[in-house]
């Protein structure tokens, strides 16, 4: 299948290939030489800090939720920007008409979607809810609920789902959630003992996670609706 005749390649291709090879070799050798004695453990300090917080037993959530929340915040902003871009283009571009709303694909998909969707949604919500003590997190939970809706959208049709989920309201809620999350986090920066300690703190943590999950779900739904509406346009 692969013809290894060197004259078949153009100079640009060979040049690129050489540069990439040099990059790989230099990086691997440099990494091998850099720290001979054992693996770097940059997060040890964080683990110690998180083990003092009684509410959190998942240290990955501890790092991105407590110590590096700006990462998460700006990630949410970037994701919002992507969703906003898609919304703008979605309004500007016309759809292809009747072809795009092919309704029922098959009854097997239809039935299995209506059966599976509650299970997928509950799993996603669980992941977002339990992010402070198990694997998961708001991002994963939101996307999993989104993929459940994807299944429904394939089975029933994106426009029907869009009406059923109150799409217009959801788009407004998206930015309210962003403000809510920002408010909680900024309060947490100045008054950490009130926001993150005790039973009330647990409530705040769950609230933030669920808010992130909802935000990501709305974003994925925006993306999804666009691509279901414009299917097959490439």
């Amino acid at each position: 299948m692969i013809d290894l005749n060197i004259s078949r390649f153009t100079p640009k291709e060979l040049y690129t290939f050489a540069v990439v090879c040099i990059f790989c070799v230099v990086t691997i050798v440099g990494l091998a030489l850099s720290s001979g004695g054992g693996t770097l453990r940059v997060g040890t300090k964080h683990i110690e800090g998180i083990s003092n917080l009684a509410n959190i037993s998942n240290s990955v959530y501890g790092v991105y939720g407590m110590y590096r929340f700006y990462d998460t915040l700006f990630e949410l902003l970037v994701f919002s920007t992507a969703a906003l871009g898609i919304t703008l283009f979605s309004d500007m571009q016309s759809t292809r008409g009747s072809d795009s709303t092919s309704s029922v694909e098959s009854h097997i998909v239809d039935t299995s979607a209506s059966f599976l969707y509650p299970i997928i949604a509950i799993f996603g919500i669980y992941l977002a809810y339990s992010a402070h003590r198990g694997p998961g997190g708001g991002f994963a939970g939101g996307v999993i609920v989104g993929s459940g809706v994807l299944l429904l959208a394939i089975a029933i049709g994106a426009d029907v789902i869009g009406e059923r989920f109150y799409e217009e309201t959801m788009k407004k809620v998206e930015y309210l959630i962003l403000i809510l999350v920002m408010a909680i986090v900024i309060t947490g920066l100045y008054l950490p003992e009130i926001v993150y300690q005790g039973n009330g703190g647990l409530g705040f943590i769950i609230l933030v996670n669920m808010a992130i999950g909802t935000k990501v779900f709305i974003g994925t739904w925006t993306v999804l609706h666009f691509f279901v509406k414009h299917r097959g346009e490439l």
């Binding site: 992941l127 997190g137 994963a140 996307v143 994807l150 999804l224 691509f227 097959g232 490439l234």
Partner: peptide, 23 residues
């Protein structure tokens, strides 16, 4: 955590969006 997120996005969502766009 990364495994769950990558599984949800990379496997399910991205593949599906490409397939939808490329039909």
């Amino acid at each position: 955590d990364v495994a769950v997120t990558e599984g949800a996005i990379g496997v399910a969502f991205v593949t599906f969006i490409y397939v939808l766009a490329l039909s």
